[in-house]
Each structure stands twice: as structure tokens, then as C-alpha cells.
Design a binder for these strands. Structure first.
Lengths: 187, 187
DNA sequence: TGATTTTCTTAAACTAGATTAATTTTTTTG
DNA sequence: CAAAAAAATTAATCTAGTTTAAGAAAATCA
């Protein structure tokens, strides 16, 4: 919970007292590795914040292969932003990569929270702006470089990450097969 | 300008009087086809809103090929969100695909605007949330389908768009070569 | 500790899509 | 309208990365 308080305060000023009230809008949840919090086919009305551990959001493609579209480690928010915004059914799953502690907030609570503390709009605007910028950067990588280069640049930039997460998840996140990733690493 | 007023009012309530004041933060700019408003290598401190026409944001990859990462038509915002947020140099260009009318706002003005009208945080949070959601959806498409399928699905979903924008721009946006796009269309 | 499950590796055959290069069609412009 | 520039097509060649299939290593669990 403390992580979240600190993260909030990077973007807006929140007093201890305010945070006391803010935290009543959330639930804390402990997840075991492989446990899921969001399932394809369900209505998406929840947003998740990672206190510790690691989650990933993935979907199952037409041939039955799981593809990770987003990882989230400490201090990251994760949800199907589109489905959440439009109150639609999602076709993504969110699953714990490691044992994790997360904050959970339903979208009606989130709306109430924002109404009660308008300055948190600034916080969420920043979060989404950063996430959107990162997504465009990722597009740029995918279009710019060969798969081999994408992997090496990714490992360069996020070494802790590559050590922490199973290789085959990294592979689908970067858009290559585990076999090919294994091959290019064997140099 | 009217387009912008209507777009704002889809997300927050803004009176005519308020809008009068809001509009003083913006500049209106007319662009000829092919004209650029953002250039790789420059500091990114501006955000753009398309009133009419069409822009695209692209970068030049290592081999000198231009790659579109984002289109923007009427009622879309466009900028390098990451560079804007961190006040960094951008490596994207923004160029008019057609003759266009756009709104321009510098980031210091944008900050001032948000300070003056806090409810606009809601507007921008929504904009970025939607854009982020769309970016993840696009990742999903790119990883799910063959390039051939990506094109046909894209054309299915945005037919006006495909008719309006040169094919070779669509091609780099979808991550395939103009030659291959031409080939798969020839069926 | 041994058994089971999960993750990673290796190698051969195959193909979607890139590359190259030349030509045609369409659009723009003076 | 003719000339130039921009956009689209075609076809042959080539390769980065996938697929398939099987085995090895590591991690988990009872």
C-alpha cells in the first residue's frame, strides 16, 4: 500500500489523511503465480495496480498461442484500457507471472474516487499518457528492427526484467517464437 | 474551431463563455499537403488537434524507410506523447497527408490551461486512455494475424480511411511493404 | 529424494513476406 | 494540355523467421 502512496505523490500531492480515505476505494489482493484476475470473455470493470510481483496481460490468438501484450511490475497499472473505458467485454487475460500483491479498484469506485478527489485526474492522465507513449515507442521498435535486434535491445534496456520473467513470455511479448529466441541467444 | 468545442463537450461540459477563454490558449494553423509541423531531432513541446484533414506521425528507420506509427483525422490529437511528457527530443515527424486545419498548443500553455480549467484533466485523461487502449489493440492485431489478414481486417474496419490515404502509407502503418500490399490486393 | 511439470534447446524443412528493379498508372502542376 | 512527380503494380529472387518434433535441463512438488 505504501508503494502506491509514494507513486501517487510523484504526480500529485496527497496528504496522509487524504490517502487514508483514498485507500478505502481499493482492495488488496494476494495472487499466487499463474493465478488470473481478468479472463477473456468477461466484462471488464476493474483496474489493477501492482504493489509487488509481476503480472502480464495476454490473449490467445487464432491458432491457440498465448501472446503477451503488456507486462506490469511494481508501480504499474494494468487493465484492458479500451474495454474498461467502453464498459465492454475484454478478450485479454491478466495473470500473475510471480506471486504478487496488487491493488484492485472497480470502475464505479474509480469514478467515485475521481469525483471525490479531482486532482487524481492528473495522476491518471499522466499514467495513461506515459503508457500511450511507451506503446508507440514499442511500435517503433517492432517496425524498425529485426527480431534479433529487438531482443538484444530489449535486454539491454530492461536486463532485470529479462532475468526475472520466463523466456517464452518475453518471446511472445516481443513477437517472436521461443524457438527462435533460443536460437539467437545461442551465440 | 467548432469541431473542437463539440469534441470537448463529449467528455466534459464547457459553456460558450468558457470555450471563448479556452480557445485563447490555442493557435489555428493551415497546412498544405506534405507540410510538416514536427521534425525529428527537435524538442517536442507541442500538441496538435486535427480540425479537418489528416496528419500522420512517422519516423525514418535505420535503412531510411519512413514508417507511420499513427494517423490522425478529424477530432484526433497527435503528438509524441512520451517526448512531450518528458520534455525530450523527439525522433518522430508529423506531416499533413492532406491539406489540413489544425489546432496547436504549446505544452506550457497546455499546463496553464489545465491549471485554469481543472475539469479538462478529465478530457485529456479520456483521450490518452482511449489512445492507449487503441495502441494495445493494434499490438494484438499485429501479433495475431498474418499481414494479409491485417490489411483486410483493417480495410473492413476503416474503409473510408483506406480510400482516403495513399496505399503506401497504409502499408507502413500496418507493417508491410507497399509491394506486398499491392500483391495481396490483386486478388 | 524421485517424479512430474515447466521451461529451454537443437536441428531440419518450409514459407510468408522482403527485396530489387523495371514498368505502368495516376495525380499534380506550370 | 504536356511534363514531371507521386503512387501503384508486377514478377523473380531470396531470407529471416516459423513450424514441427524431439530431447535436455530446470524448477516444483509430494
Amino acid at each position: 500500500m505504501n508503494h502506491f502512496f509514494q507513486h501517487l505523490n510523484k504526480f500529485v500531492s496527497v496528504t496522509d489523511q487524504e490517502f487514508q480515505e483514498i485507500s478505502t476505494y481499493f482492495e488488496v489482493l494476494s495472487l499466487d503465480k499463474k493465478e488470473c484476475v481478468m479472463l477473456a470473455g468477461n466484462h471488464c470493470d476493474t483496474n489493477y495496480f501492482v504493489l509487488s510481483g509481476c503480472l502480464h496481460m495476454f490473449f490467445t490468438d487464432e491458432r491457440g498461442v498465448d501472446r503477451t501484450v503488456q507486462f506490469a511490475i511494481e508501480n504499474w497499472w494494468l487493465t484492458d484500457a479500451q474495454a474498461l473505458y467502453h464498459q465492454k467485454v475484454t478478450d485479454f487475460n491478466i495473470q500473475a507471472v510471480e506471486n504478487s500483491e496488487i491493488l484492485v479498484i472497480k470502475s464505479d469506485k474509480e469514478r467515485a474516487l475521481l469525483a471525490r478527489f479531482p486532482k487524481l485526474e492528473i495522476y491518471f492522465r499522466s499514467i495513461y499518457q506515459i503508457a500511450y507513449g511507451a506503446a508507440l515507442k514499442r511500435m517503433q521498435y517492432i517496425f524498425s528492427y529485426s527480431k534479433e535486434e529487438i531482443f538484444f535491445r530489449f535486454r539491454e534496456e530492461f536486463p532485470e526484467f529479462v532475468n526475472r520473467v520466463p523466456q517464452y513470455l518475453i518471446a511472445t511479448f516481443l513477437g517472436l517464437t521461443p524457438e527462435y529466441l533460443s536460437k539467437i541467444r545461442a551465440k
